[in-house]
Every structure is written in structure tokens, then in C-alpha cells.
């Protein structure tokens, strides 16, 4: 039976990049057409001027906030607007490899699996995300800025994967109540993964192919990261297991 995937893309500005990101989503959906169908939902998070529906012919739903809301609110609204079996949260600056979604679908059906991420690279070919690990002071991207060739291509099982490209079972999403809206922008993805694991779900990261993530392209993104980190640490500090095998590069 074909599964329904809601691809939820919260977006603010970056019109041209968004259009290319959607093109990549379509390519990825074509590769899994025999087992899944997709609904593309864009949440226009107070872009000025607003996105025009006619400029985004491939999408199915365009939501609009006139005032800038949190990443969580935009994602939650997007998911609420869809009927689906799986949710793919996707940043507007992620260019999904055409085979990435297929591997994520394979993984999400493993026993206990709740959330699946995928390997993301910076445009220069170094790793942006191959899994999030936890040290004493908090989560960080494992092997960030290192060559993609140093990390094996087998799936990794982790405590957390980035929300930049995150496939979540809809029933798990509902059980967790979606993303926590206390986070201005950032760390809500880690919060979601840790909560899912507390219920016994697993989190994995697909590694077979490299997608591109420009990271933090949205205006105002970085400024919101600090208060988000504060919320995360108040809630979770001392409550995660430490799984970082070594110090982050550059530390």
C-alpha cells in the first residue's frame, strides 16, 4: 500500500533556493513513487513580500504567517494541514539527493524506528550532518566540516538527527504532540528526538547518499539560536547519555 508523506517546508524568503529545493523533493518522490506519494506543504513564515502560489507550481499547500513564528509553530501548522502516514520536515536550503528519501523510507520501517535523518553535506563536500551526538555540554554535529569519505555508509543509530531533513512516523509525531513550540529556532529537533527515545523509539541516520545543506541561510536564524539553546539546556542538561566518541573537531 502506498504511504502518504507530508513534506513540510517552513520557509522565509530565499525564494530561488526554495524553488530548487522543491525540485529536488520532486525528484526524490519520483524515485519512490511505487511505494509512497507526497504532499508538499510550504509554510511561508512572514516572507516580505509573501510567496506567490503561481511561482511554486509544484507544491500542494501554501500556508502563510504574516508575523514571524518559530520553526516549531510553522512545522506543526504544516503537519496539521496534512493527512499523512509520514512527515518529512525539510529546510528550504536542503537539496535532497534523489535517492535519500528511499533509504529513509527503508529505515523508518525498522522495528521501533520513530525518526530518521539523512547525511547532509556543505556545498564544499564536507559533512554538515551525519548524526548528532552528545557530549557533556550538549549536542553537536558529529564530524562536522570533515570529509564525507571518512564516515561509513551504513546507517547510524543515534540519540538525535537534525530537523533539517527529518522523516517521522505520523503516529509518533502525534504521540509526541509535534515539535515543542517553546524553542524560538533551533534545538526543537533534538528535543523531539530525545522525547521519542524516552518512549522507546529509535532514531537513525541514513548515510548512503549525500544531500546538500547550505545551513542557516534564513535571515534572523542565528540570533534565535541562543535563546533556543538556553531552553534546551534548562530542560535537558544532565538528562542525555553521553555518546560522543571523541571531542568535536576544532574543540
Amino acid at each position: 500500500m502506498s504511504e502518504r508523506i507530508a513534506i513540510v517546508i517552513p520557509s522565509r524568503g530565499m525564494n530561488a533556493l526554495l524553488a530548487v529545493a522543491i525540485d529536488h523533493v520532486q525528484l526524490a518522490l519520483e524515485q519512490v513513487a511505487d511505494r509512497a506519494s507526497g504532499t508538499i506543504i510550504v509554510c511561508d513564515n512572514a516572507t516580505d513580500p509573501p510567496y506567490v502560489r503561481a511561482d511554486l507550481p509544484a507544491i500542494d499547500v501554501l500556508l502563510r504567517y504574516d508575523e514571524h513564528r518559530s520553526f516549531s509553530e510553522a512545522c506543526n501548522a504544516g503537519v496539521a494541514a496534512s493527512a499523512c502516514d509520514l512527515v518529512l520536515l525539510l529546510n528550504n536550503d536542503v537539496l535532497l539527493h534523489r535517492h535519500a528519501l528511499g533509504e529513509m523510507l527503508d529505515l523508518v520501517h525498522e522495528p521501533l524506528m520513530g525518526i530518521v535523518g539523512t547525511r547532509l553535506l556543505f556545498p564544499d563536500g564536507t559533512i554538515q550532518h551525519c548524526g548528532v551526538v552528545f557530549g557533556e555540554h550538549g549536542p553537536f554535529h558529529d564530524r562536522a566540516r570533515r570529509p564525507t569519505t571518512i564516515v561509513p555508509r551504513a546507517p547510524r543509530y543515534l540519540q538525535c538527527v537534525t530537523g533539517a531533513a527529518q522523516l517521522i512516523r505520523r503516529d509518533v509525531w502525534e504521540q509526541l504532540g509535534g515539535l515543542c513550540e517553546d524553542y524560538p529556532f533551533g534545538y526543537e529537533d533534538a528535543d523531539l528526538c530525545l522525547r521519542a527515545r524516552q518512549l522507546g523509539y529509535r532514531v537513525a541516520c541514513a548515510q548512503r547518499v549525500d544531500s546538500i545543506h547550505f545551513e542557516s541561510q534564513t535571515p534572523g536564524r542565528v540570533e534565535r539560536d541562543i535563546p533556543s539553546r538556553r531552553v534546551f539546556l534548562e530542560r535537558w542538561h544532565g538528562r542525555w547519555s553521553i555518546d560522543a566518541e571523541e571531542l568535536p573537531y576544532g574543540a
Binding site: 521501533l112 557533556e136 540519540q159 530525545l194 527515545r197 524516552q198 522507546g200 538528562r239 542525555w240 547519555s241
Partner: peptide, 27 residues
């Protein structure tokens, strides 16, 4: 967890041990 059994650690205050490497969820 690796064998497909949902499992977690429970501590009196929900705090995790930080002196060894693990991925076990803690409640």
C-alpha cells in the same frame, strides 16, 4: 534497543550518568 526491544533507564531524578559512553534514554 539494538535488538528491537524498547528500553530505557530510570533514575530517581531523571539524571543520566555521564562517566561512560551510552545512548540509553533516561527518564
Amino acid at each position: 534497543q539494538a535488538e528491537g526491544v524498547a528500553a530505557c533507564i530510570a533514575t530517581p531524578d531523571g539524571k543520566a550518568s555521564g562517566w561512560f559512553r551510552s545512548q540509553a534514554p533516561v527518564v
